[in-house]
């Protein structure tokens, strides 16, 4: 097997004696589309912040392949009303290529926002701009933290299709935190279910039928359309 793009080796992260992530071992390979799911407070965002090097692990090692470009999309950014900045100037901070900026905004259907002040964008509009920003750089690895929150229902599907397109046709590797247990999960190569530790991982079908998943998302089965393949017990240990 090839060398992974990202490698977590027995990573522990704690703050003030509280363990947020516990003994995480994880590989991400070139070309994969991995979904990261888990309840609120499971450490999903912390996981991503460790990966991008924003915070350092308490113990363990994180290795990134040399020279890898990362396009990171956070859940939100700090927009102070005293900072006047248009969408165009914002995008301009991250790319010198005007054509590329226009194309990225076009892809997320946000080109009409070009001259709008960032602070005046709605939640969904801001998400689109942030997604466009992360498509800008020729980053091999896209790390998306709940990319479609605040986006309207139709828009969610459009953006998910766009992300999948960047994976399938443009060969980007994607690691995405998502609460969508239906569409996204089924299209992923691999699903990782996180609740402070990795409680299960594997192909979507495999994860969805595992006991830890069903303990964490008991109601999810009412909404998702997947089919059961095997019997299992609801064993909570």
């Amino acid at each position: 097997m090839s060398i992974p793009l990202v490698q977590f080796k027995d990573v522990v992260y704690g703050v003030d004696g509280r363990t947020i992530l516990d003994h995480i071992t994880f590989d991400l390979f070139d070309g994969e589309f991995v979904s990261l799911i888990g309840p609120n407070g499971a450490g999903k965002t912390t996981f991503l912040k460790l990966l991008i090097g924003r915070i350092a692990p308490t113990s363990g090692a994180i290795t990134l392949q040399k020279g890898i470009g990362i396009g990171y999309m956070p859940q939100s950014i700090h927009l102070d009303p005293t900072l006047p900045i248009t969408v165009e100037r914002f995008m301009d901070l991250y790319s010198d290529n005007r054509k590329e900026i226009h194309e990225a905004l076009e892809a997320v259907r946000a080109k009409q926002l070009l001259n709008k002040n960032m602070a005046q964008l709605s939640g969904g509009e801001l998400q689109r701009v942030l997604l466009a920003r992360c498509l800008l750089s020729a980053s091999q690895l896209l790390i998306l933290d709940e990319p479609v929150q605040w986006v309207d229902f139709l828009g969610q599907r459009q953006l998910y299709e766009l992300i999948i397109d960047y994976h399938q046709n443009k060969g980007r590797t994607i690691l995405m935190v998502s609460h969508d247990l239906n569409l996204v999960l089924k299209r992923s190569d691999r699903v990782i279910c996180l609740n402070s530790h990795i409680c299960c991982e594997g192909k979507p079908d495999h994860v969805q039928s595992s006991a830890p998943y069903q303990a964490l998302f008991p109601a999810a089965q009412d909404f998702t359309t997947y089919t059961h393949h095997h019997d299992h017990t609801h064993d909570h240990h």
Binding site: I52, G53, P74, H78, I85
Partner: peptide, 17 residues
């Protein structure tokens, strides 16, 4: 200047960059 603006807008994006 550009780096300062980037860190003001999002330290996370700046770090990933």
């Amino acid at each position: 200047w550009g780096d300062l603006l980037k860190t003001i807008l999002s330290e996370d994006i700046a770090a990933a960059d």
